[in-house]
Amino acid sequence: MSVAYTPLEMGLAIASVALATFVTRSTLLVVGERLRFAPRVEAALRYAPVCALAALVVPEILFRQDALVLGLDNPRLPAAIAASLFLLWKRSIVGCIAVGMSVYALWRYFVIGA
């Protein structure tokens, strides 16, 4: 990577994430004593995080260095599928990470040989 953040930009980025934590969690507790969401607004707030996470996670799994890799040479794909199936079976974060990382490591070792 040729460009990098200046310390100021890095500080701003970190501060913005911290601020987002505060604003989303505390604003409604502190101000606005009587307020109800319209159903549409509530729906948007409810579905936004899952959409954002999906839009972030899926490309992370499918792309490598800006190229779409859908074949057997992408160890993240079988690992993510195995981890998802495990999650549907048992709702365990620890298990999901363990299964995903195991498949990821084994796949890289045996299928790709790296």
Binding site: V50, L53, A54, L56, V57, E60, I61, R76, A79, A80, A83, S84, L87, L88, I93, C96, I97, G100, M101, Y104
Partner: peptide
Amino acid sequence: FAGILALLALVV
């Protein structure tokens, strides 16, 4: 990649 899997554990 474990970080990605942790997010996946939230999405599914």
